[in-house]
Amino acid sequence: MDPLMMTDINGQTSYMCVLDNFCTITREKYDDHVKTAHMGEKEMYCTQCDKRFFDRSEYKMHMVKHAQDESQWKCPECETKFTTERSRTRHIKAVHWGQKNHVCFQCAKAFYSKGELKNHSYSHTGNYPFACKVCDFKTSNATHLKKHKRKHTGEKPWECEHCDFATSARSNLNRHMMTHTGDKRFKCDQCTYKTVSASGLKSHQRIHTGEKPYDCSDCEYKSAFSSNLLAHRKTKHGVTGPIITSTSKSGLPNTLSNL
């Protein structure tokens, strides 16, 4: 389907879709729009570089290339793999060397990068610049807002090449892929529990510590797990929408949803 082409006074050409008025300055983005919005084709995103594919065979070949490239940049300390030497160096400095030179002048908390410090600063002002138009979710990061919106749209662009698993976040897919490799590197020091993610281990350890960070705003109920709080809110109070339960260590709100 050919676009409606328009040229402005500066000579810039734009491509407009005649079916829904979608407009872009690149033909590639226009073609992608037609395929996904009007031809029913499904986009597949690379879990490493965000490159998009419509052909599954091309997608799989691309992922194999990343798997080969990753073997070059393995962290010598924890064997985490990276696609570039720069990302590996950043990981080593921040995680293993503890290099955090950017300090918050209000609470003295230190961060590896200026970007991390800037995001943290919103926790003191409470003025989060990116807000969801559907619910009360707010964040200091545009990417986090984009991921959150998928809870409302149901979009799950990240697909496993080995099974039918699909998710709205690339990090979830990365953790899921470990279930196929059996790589459960995070181990509990008090029992035999193992998991593929640090967050999963942290959540599990609440069983041993008795910590219950999720509080119900309508009664005295507390839980160690967000899923239990959501179930409680739904059955006891009839609440099914997103809720903010607590504040994370970074100062950003923890928003829970059963959408």
Rank of each mutant, 00 (worst) to 15 (best):
T181Y: 02
A131R: 09
G115K: 02
Y112K: 04
H91G: 06
A224M: 03
E79C: 13
A108S: 10
V18H: 03
E28N: 04
D164Y: 03
C160L: 07
E211N: 04
K147F: 07
Q68P: 00
F225L: 12
S226D: 15
E70P: 00
H102A: 03
A166S: 08
K51Q: 15
E79S: 11
E28F: 04
H144A: 14
Q12A: 13
I25K: 13
N21E: 13
I92L: 06
H62N: 14
H208P: 01
E116G: 14
D189A: 10
C135N: 05
H62T: 09
N254M: 07
R88A: 03
A142I: 13
S113G: 08
Q12Y: 01
E161Q: 10
Y59W: 15
N119S: 09
M63T: 10
R170A: 14
V103H: 05
R150Y: 01
S113P: 09
M16L: 04
H38Y: 04
H232F: 06
K100W: 08
K133Q: 05
A169D: 15
R170S: 15
H162Y: 13
G251A: 03
G40L: 04
A231K: 10
W97D: 11
C49H: 07
T153D: 11
G11D: 11
K42P: 03
K93A: 14
E155N: 10
H208V: 04
K236S: 12
D69Y: 03
N119F: 08
L256M: 12
A142H: 10
T125F: 01
T167I: 01
K184I: 10
S197P: 01
T26K: 06
Q99Y: 12
S171W: 04
K249V: 11
E79P: 00
Y30R: 03
F130C: 01
G126T: 00
F53Y: 14
K222G: 00
K149Y: 05
G210P: 04
D32G: 07
P242T: 02
S227I: 11
D55C: 13
F22N: 10
F186C: 12
T47C: 07
S227E: 11
K114H: 14
Y45H: 06
K202G: 15
K81E: 07
C17D: 08
G241W: 05
G154E: 05
T143D: 08
F165I: 03
K236F: 05
L117N: 01
E159F: 15
S57G: 05
Y128R: 01
G40H: 06
C17I: 07
A110I: 11
C78T: 01
R27W: 14
E28G: 05
T26W: 06
T245F: 00
F111R: 02
S203W: 00
H237R: 04
E77A: 02
T7H: 01
H124P: 00
T195Q: 02
K65I: 07
M63F: 05
